Amino acid sequence: MADDRAPRQPRRADARDNRERIVRAARAAFAEQGPHASLNRIAAAAGVGAGTLYRHFPSEQALLVEIIRDDVDALCATGRALADQPDTADALRHWLHAVARHATAMRGLVATHMAAVSRPGTDATLAACHDAIRATGAALLDRARQRGAAPTTVDIGDLLTLANALAWASEQAPDDPGLLDRLLGIALAGLDV
């Protein structure tokens, strides 16, 4: 995913430190509490005031983008690498597993925000993350279709929704670490993907 952030003036060391502490605290809070994490508690855990948090990240979505940007880039790079795999159906299945694992990050927070990117008020950078994932998946799906390995009736949006839904379902059973892989196997076998 291209980094479309505007060039910035160099930050003061204390501002950089505050930003890094906020990101670390947010990553921990989101991993533990998912969408129930409080931005005020994140600020407190980072040792900064709420104003400092909002100066760096004006919304929860902006903070989430900062945390997941590298993960989205890695997910898209995985998709590009899989595009060279001879078994196009297997490449698509492998990538959808990676998407589902990504969707489980931060206890459903990522999946919740990605599902809402078409709503008004969505952070443009978060929407760009979603678009990058969608474009990567569409390329893999198109390649599989060209080789007759995926039905023409399947849409990448549907596959991403399915991966997110199965990721959510697997999070509801934390004592069953193999559930996500089993559910994906069943769903994708039924789709001939």
Rank of each mutant, 00 (worst) to 15 (best):
D71L: 06
A62E: 15
W168Y: 09
T152I: 12
R147Y: 05
L126F: 08
G137I: 01
Q33G: 05
T112S: 07
G190M: 05
D123A: 03
A189W: 07
A100G: 01
A98I: 10
D73S: 12
L140T: 00
L166T: 12
A165L: 15
R11M: 12
V154Y: 06
E60F: 01
A45D: 12
R24G: 07
A187E: 13
R19C: 06
D73F: 09
S59M: 01
T88H: 14
P151M: 08
A46D: 07
M106I: 03
V117Q: 14
G185N: 12
R69Q: 10
R107W: 03
G79C: 09
R41V: 04
R16Q: 12
T161Y: 02
P58D: 15
L179E: 06
H102I: 00
R24D: 14
G79M: 12
L159E: 00
R27K: 04
D87L: 02
L166H: 05
A149C: 06
L63W: 01
H113D: 11
N40V: 11
T122I: 06
D181P: 05
V154A: 13
A6D: 09
L109I: 07
I68K: 02
M114E: 10
R145W: 04
I42Y: 00
T122M: 03
I186Q: 09
E20A: 15
A44Q: 14
D123Y: 01
A43L: 04
P86I: 04
A150I: 01
R119H: 10
T52N: 07
Q146Y: 01
R24E: 14
V23Y: 01
G178I: 07
T125V: 04
H94A: 13
L184E: 09
